[in-house]
Amino acid sequence: MKKAEKVRIGISIGDLNGIGSEIILKTFHDARMLEFCTPVIFANTKLLSFYKKHFKININFQGIDNASKIIDGKINVVNVWKDNTKINFGKEDKFLGKFTVKSLEAATNALINKEIDTLVTAPINKNVIQSKEFNFPGHTDYLAQKMKGDSLMLMVCDKLRVGLLTDHVAVKDIAEKITSELIQKKVAIIHDTLKTDFRIQKPKIAILGINPHSGDNGVIGKEDEEVLKPTILKINERGTLVYGPYAADSFFGTKNYKNFDAVIAAYHDQGLIPFKTLSFGKGVNFTAGLSEIRTSPDHGTAYEIAGKGEADYTSFKEAVFSSIEIFKCRSEYNSLIENQLQKQSKKL
């Protein structure tokens, strides 16, 4: 990559009544960010001007009609719509939800068409974006369908990486969702992404138990004995370093997580509660397993402080930097593989 070229970071605006706009503007108010990337915000220049005035953030951006006209070294705003939007911070608004979806769809299409290099998504309210045309629990499911991949939510903060076997699944349905096939698929995704996106040649992965104390040898539930343990053995036979199941209640408190490159939790809260406790607002949500790169901050719309200028943009900024780093790692890995293939073909 030439020095003059910057990673083009596509940004979806998120919920218009949430804190997405504030954390985006605060992140790129620092002109030094343009030394690392070219931001491309998919929204509307009038809307961004309103946010800029409301939050009293002196920032300049370049309005463009589509992503093919991106200007490197500038903050670009792709005008996805021309409609007027009335902002009412902290309120659920299904009408504004349509613009959230338009931003996400436009950014995703630009990503697939290689007009941008990565995607960073601002927080959404899942309730206000639902419609007959858009019926997804969240970003991850939508992106997985658009890119026809097997996605996995991987929470990242420095060397702490926590993935999930099941993500947005009701607690009563968790056990029946966890099958040997699912475990093998999720482990494969994390193993591949650790090598491709994080420069780890021989990843070590820990898996947390499904039941308390990993079932206590079947006394508290059979799933750990009948599903998890045999599957872990099967995966190990292939040469992948996977260990467990570990009792989730003590795993993080004893700092055992530091002995592994990634941890796989059985369900959402089992993984995200300790992750968010340890990451102190610096966590990043990375969607592993897709052909393209997407990150996001590890928090929601924060309606309770929206519009007040109090939002902490640390996690969003970390999502931008993670996006850049993962893009560079993946590019290097793909170049290495390509060079190896070329050398092998010359020998034939």
Rank of each mutant, 00 (worst) to 15 (best):
N217Q: 15
H213C: 07
I205Y: 05
D192E: 12
V169T: 13
H191R: 07
S151F: 13
A188I: 02
I174T: 14
G209V: 06
T196G: 02
G221D: 07
G221P: 04
S151N: 09
A170V: 09
R161E: 01
D197Y: 04
D192N: 14
K146D: 02
K186P: 05
K186N: 09
S180E: 13
A170L: 10
L208P: 00
C157V: 04
H191F: 13
K172P: 00
T193L: 03
V162M: 01
G221E: 09
I210P: 00
K202T: 13
I220P: 05
Q201T: 02
P203Y: 09
G221N: 08
L182F: 05
I189R: 12
I174A: 08
V156A: 03
I220D: 07
D167P: 00
D158C: 04
P203H: 11
I174L: 07
L154D: 11
K177R: 15
I207T: 13
G215R: 10
D150W: 00
I220C: 06
N217M: 13
D197C: 15
Q201G: 00
D173H: 11
L164T: 12
E181K: 15
N211F: 05
V156S: 04
A188T: 14
G215P: 10
K172I: 09
T193M: 14
S151M: 12
K172T: 09
H168L: 10
M155G: 06
E176H: 08
I190Y: 05
N211L: 08
V171M: 07
N217H: 13
I200G: 03
A188S: 15
C157N: 14
K202E: 15
E181T: 15
N211G: 10
M153P: 02
G215K: 10
M155I: 01
Q201F: 00
N211S: 10
Q201W: 02
H168E: 10
H213M: 06
L152E: 12
D192W: 01
K146M: 14
V187S: 02
T166K: 12
T193C: 14
K195A: 01
T179S: 14
N217K: 15
I189W: 07
Q184G: 04
K186Q: 15
C157Q: 06
I189G: 08
R161N: 01
I200M: 01
K146P: 02
A206N: 13
L160E: 01
K202F: 12
V162L: 01
I190S: 09
R199S: 15
G218V: 12
K148Q: 15
K186M: 12
G209A: 06
T166Y: 04
R161M: 00
L208Y: 01
V156T: 13
T196V: 15
C157G: 01
Q201L: 01
G163F: 09
A188W: 01
H191Y: 15
V187D: 02
K172W: 00
K177I: 04
L208G: 01
G163C: 11
G149W: 06
T196M: 13
K146S: 10
I200T: 04
Q201H: 00
G209M: 05
L165A: 11
I210K: 07
V156Q: 03
I189K: 12
L164A: 07
